[in-house]
Design a protein around this nucleic acid. Structure first.
Lengths: 213, 213
DNA sequence: TGTACATCAGTGAACGCGCGTTCACTGATGTAC
DNA sequence: TGTACATCAGTGAACGCGCGTTCACTGATGTAC
């Protein structure tokens, strides 16, 4: 019965699952999510299409798993950077590096939503982990900023954050998120392509803005 | 020969083309671009699938046309708001309203890029029109900001903008774009959904930041 | 005003394709006695 | 250590489906003389 859960069969399963996912990522990077085909993946892995159903219930479950992994990867990356001493600007650069490493993984999370699709609850929980790190990072900053109208509003809608954190700090974390995302998604989608400047430098300036918001 | 180009046949063609596009938009709003099907559109319009080929060479041309229309709509909206006296914050609200009116149209332009797809040149030209309006709007603002490292860098890559505009102004227009896009795309994709605050108020604060950047 | 004709707008059948998924079945693997 | 057996991992054939697209053909529309 292999009570420990790490019998050779289970190890094998985990390995094949990982291999399937890796080929799925390659296919997504090449042609985007809509073009992700179970049969094509199976061929690459070296088995028949139906065999995939031993590892994933169906196409949707595979995609959901990829989304989960993407969130997990981002949360872990950000968390370990922060634990390693990264401050707010360093965290921003960490997020950017993570996104540049695999743009389609970034877009799988933050790109065009599919109407009607709702991410499973645990992925939003992982997403919150990211926000938690940002909040911790901003909590370490001096709180010398004048309160804004949104700070006041936010104070009434903050059930998702620890009570001891000032609204201005939460606001800082949110702004980190929107500004970083703003530059990144335009850059990754190629909207700066014709302009010739270096997106990294625009990004750097925008990161500076977070400190003197 | 109907030299004017407005014979009744041409009027009819234009009408049907418009009707096809409208149904295409409805389908996109319902299920996203990947699910857009020529046959399904034809059925809605009330004709057979092959008949669409009288109006569009193929599926790609239809989508390209939708993209073109989306850019056109945004450019016209922003331009007429500005000509009507809108300042920078008002322009930001105009863009937000435009995006909220049809999120999938917004994402068709600014959402997840399809790997390998390159928008035709004229759409990037229309996109530039938007930037031009933003530059004009920022040029009307007092230029009392200290120069940033990116301003210096940008001064060397500004062939896409009129020579008489200071780099700081171009930087302002770019920042408008990234910050507005940052809040908007996260909002429209539902990433603030669980948090309970009003995205409009976060947006308002972010727009304020553009004036005291 | 009437007629001839080119063009336009549409139909329906058919094409090949790749998709996700099911099913019956086979052989290998690991476990229990 | 050997054997019996349940489970697991895989195959190949087949399903129905909807897709984009082509083709031959028909009738309507507008134009030229």
């Amino acid at each position: 019965m292999a009570a420990g859960g790490t019998g050779s069969r289970e190890r094998y399963r985990a390995q094949v699952r990982a291999e399937i996912k890796q080929h799925a990522w390659e296919q997504i990077a090449t042609a985007g999510v809509p073009a992700l085909s179970l049969n094509a993946i199976a061929k690459r892995v070296g088995m028949s299409g139906p065999a995939l159903y031993w590892y994933f219930a169906n196409r949707d479950e595979l995609i959901t798993e990829l989304i989960r992994d993407a969130y997990r990867s981002l949360a872990d990356t950000v968390r370990s950077a922060f634990d390693g001493g990264a401050d707010v600007p360093a965290l921003a650069r960490t997020v950017r590096d993570w996104a540049l490493h695999d743009p389609q993984r970034y877009f799988l999370i933050y790109g065009t939503p599919v109407p009607g699709y709702h991410a499973p609850e645990d992925t939003t929980a992982i997403s919150n982990e990211v926000m938690t790190v940002l909040i911790e990072a901003f909590a370490a900053l001096p709180a010398d900023r004048p309160s804004t109208p949104f700070d006041t509003h936010l104070d009434k809608h903050r059930h998702w954050a620890p009570a001891e954190i000032p609204a201005a700090t939460l606001h800082g974390a949110l702004t980190f998120w929107t500004r970083v995302h703003g530059v990144l998604s335009l850059e990754l989608a190629g909207h700066f392509a014709g302009m010739g400047f270096d997106p990294a430098q625009l990004f750097a300036d925008e990161v500076d803005s977070l400190l003197s918001r």
